[in-house]
Write a protein that binds this DNA or RNA. Sequence first.
DNA 1: CGCTTAATTGACACGCCTCAATAAAGGTGG
DNA 2: CCACCTTTATTGAGGCGTGTCAATTAAGCG
Lengths: 251, 251
Amino acid sequence: MTTKAVELAKAKVKLTPRRASCAAQDCHACEIRDLTFCAGLDESEIATLSGIALRMHFAKRRVIFHEGDAADMVYNVTQGAVRLCKLTPDGRRQITGFLLPGDFLGLGGRQGYAYGAEAITDVELCRFRRDKLEKLFENHRQLERRLFKIANDELAIAQDQMLLLGRKTAKERLATFLLNLSEREELRGGQGGVVYLPMVQEDIADYLGLTIETVSRTISQLKRDRLIHQTTSHEFELPRIEELRHLAEQT
Amino acid sequence: MTTKAVELAKAKVKLTPRRASCAAQDCHACEIRDLTFCAGLDESEIATLSGIALRMHFAKRRVIFHEGDAADMVYNVTQGAVRLCKLTPDGRRQITGFLLPGDFLGLGGRQGYAYGAEAITDVELCRFRRDKLEKLFENHRQLERRLFKIANDELAIAQDQMLLLGRKTAKERLATFLLNLSEREELRGGQGGVVYLPMVQEDIADYLGLTIETVSRTISQLKRDRLIHQTTSHEFELPRIEELRHLAEQT
DNA sequence: CGCTTAATTGACACGCCTCAATAAAGGTGG
DNA sequence: CCACCTTTATTGAGGCGTGTCAATTAAGCG
């Protein structure tokens, strides 16, 4: 990849001031209260958490943090979609995850964050200072256990993704991807068999270890095979979900 | 892949009784006491941990646990090497990690383990019942924090691996792999620039998302380029480590 | 030493990538 | 709401890196 390509790649996100609109948060009124790590907490816990939470907004394409930044904040996505990106020095990009409302953001850092986070759409986040959150753990073990469980889940998901990236064909990757999104939407109360894709095909390509052309061609092929049906520009139906599942070779 | 190939793939591990030789453990005398999550614990903590630890031995190629098994045990590798494997229904394999002495085994499970674990060499393990370990956390928060940190580290490593599998060339993958092993050996007190590979090339291929032929050819090429030098059948020197690092495109 | 497993190498195939052209969708300002 | 421009998606032609198949050599081990 040329130096120019790197410049181009880096120009694709808005690097304007990090500061985003923010306000104190009332967790009681939170739209995703029973989806995420704050789900099912008792009144006192919710109140304490509310005290250290800061509600933030990031516009589409804004950088939430860069790979390598000091990992002193963690977040909860309450609205919108976020992509987690890793870049090689020559500009190749790997997206290691997409976050949707209810997802937790900021784990996986050693010194700094292991990935950058960027808003795919306009995004609402609930931000916590890591040290304050850890302070809270002292009296709210439940919270700590839950975060540990989230880390464990993410680890399992990461390993599934390694199987996909290392061993699956383009068609299998797309099938797996669509099914995963569909399942996540169901967990969030959406209907099964319909997926909304907030990201562009370039993001999908960088998530699945493919090129945009291969993603486009494979989607076309899945349409021809009637395994998926495009309803709007970003929404798909999965009319033969069992066949799709078979194709995805879910372990 | 044919059904026969699946049979063959599955036949490669010894499925004989899980039971392995085991004995109570004295953590004070442990050879890896200051490498892993039991490092730097105070006397009382070591003693308590010792009380629930069970020392186990697995012969080369034995299965420690299968993907999907109830994840009620966690382990610490004290000697030998372990591979973590995921399989597709048609027999394709992805190795998601290699464990060496000091490494922790058993995280990343949701219901069951997200991967199977197999002994590459004869292996010594220190086993803990998960529920007992969690019980211990109540009075030894330090231990819990440490395990959480391990989960975080593994997550960061998994994301590096996704970048490798999704975006790196065969040559870059091998370079990255050798450098990673070299760094891990240094952490364990080994000398830099020399790596010992306990696994066969088929394992390396399944770890890097390649075939054995590509692994072999790429190693030959690295030798021709004098970036690596084979001293014994399983040991390599890395005489030009900076060039290798550049090739690996470490982010 | 002899057998089995692992590694190497060559010839060829194929899936995905690259490059290029065009079409479609999305955003903006009047 | 439309015209214009930019971004995104689609599709084709051709190339390349890695996979597949096959033969041979080397290493491991009883």
